[in-house]
């Protein structure tokens, strides 16, 4: 067991998978000699060489297009998009090409690319280094969307993604890239894609969260506990395919739901969670569902601490559902 950060977990996962499988290649901007702007691909170039750790020209559409071609031909391409805010030039290649190859070719062609990209606020990055773009991709049939919330999951889920036959968008919460550290086994392990995790067991209300919002949910539950309310935190881990069973099981137990995301509220992933609960479990609900989210504004620079959901804002929502 070693105590490591998410950055180290990602780096370890890449090293292990590249050692295990010669077909795994990493490509992107500054991922080679420089080791990535967040150091997630550190040492890889030295270990695996020019052909497998590739500094590309600066074009996201080119990076993903190349990765698709490589994977069609049998490589396992793991491109990095430096910030998820820069992913839009590749949006067409991801949503309309990568995600659709299996379907449109009748299963003849597959391209199980794993796109790694840091997302989210909290690093003083301003609008173009802070967004949470997940719903643009969760709305896309054919893509798997994964968001780890700690180092153990980051390593296990990334290894599972690299071994997956489907294309995966792997969103890395950069706010918690380097802290906290966590003990992670040295042995080979994977975390199954499509399974949520209960991070805190509770009976009075459920909070759904993913990525950097999980620790906010945990902090809010500590505050709620002071008021005598015992919350359950469901870390979704995979957004598509969603672990609907765990969501329904949790709200069936608690009867109250607060959803938490840092992305804008309107048509956010939490809206889908709310709709699923309304369709399938409205009869167990004892209070209206409350969504805590980023605002429906662009992401601000100076006031990001106000924009980003924090424990006190979540506590307000908890109070509303508990006192309804």
């Amino acid at each position: 067991m070693a105590e490591i950060t998410i950055v180290q977990a990602v780096n370890d996962a890449l090293k292990e998978e590249m050692t295990r499988d010669d077909d795994v290649v990493v490509l992107g901007e500054d991922v080679g000699v420089n080791g990535g702007v967040f150091r997630c691909t550190a040492d890889l170039h030295e270990m695996f060489g020019d052909d497998r750790v590739i500094d590309t020209p600066l074009s996201e559409s080119g990076i993903i297009g190349a990765a698709i071609g490589m994977s069609l031909y049998g490589l396992k391409a793991v491109p990095e998009i430096q910030f998820s805010d820069f992913i839009w030039p590749a949006f067409d290649q991801i949503t309309s090409e990568l995600a659709k190859f299996r379907y449109r070719s009748g299963g003849q062609f597959t391209c199980p690319v794993v796109i790694r990209t840091p997302y989210g606020g909290g690093i003083r990055g301003g609008h173009y280094h802070s967004q949470s773009p997940e719903v643009y991709f969760t709305h896309t049939s054919g893509l798997v969307v994964v968001v780890p919330s700690d180092a153990y999951d980051a390593k296990g889920l990334l290894k599972a993604a690299i071994r997956s036959p489907d294309p995966v968008l792997f969103l890395e919460p950069k706010k918690i890239y380097r802290a906290p550290k966590m003990e992670v086994p040295d042995d080979d392990y994977v975390v199954e894609i499509g399974k949520a995790a209960v991070r805190r067991e509770g009976t009075d209300f459920t909070i759904t969260a993913y990525g950097a919002m999980v620790e906010v949910a945990m902090a809010a539950c500590e505050k709620a506990a002071e008021k005598g309310w015992n919350g359950e935190v469901l870390d979704l881990r995979t957004l598509v395919p969603l672990d609907e069973e765990s969501l329904i099981a949790s709200v069936t137990k608690t009867g109250r739901l607060v959803t938490l995301q840092e992305a804008p509220k309107f048509c956010g992933f939490s809206s889908e969670l709310s709709a699923i609960v309304a369709e399938k479990a409205i009869d167990v609900m004892e209070a209206p569902i409350k969504r805590v989210a980023g605002f429906d504004t662009p992401f601000p620079y100076t006031l990001e601490h106000v924009y980003m959901p924090h424990a006190d804002r979540v506590l307000n929502a908890i109070t509303e559902v508990m006192t309804y």
């Binding site: 297009g65 190349a66 071609g69 069609l72 062609f109």
Partner: peptide
């Protein structure tokens, strides 16, 4: 290879396949 109707996308993919070769 299966094509989409979106113009130009396949040029990048053809580059990627060549690169993999």
């Amino acid at each position: 290879v299966s094509l989409s109707s979106v113009i130009g996308t396949q040029i990048n993919q053809a580059m990627g396949v060549g690169w993999a070769m």
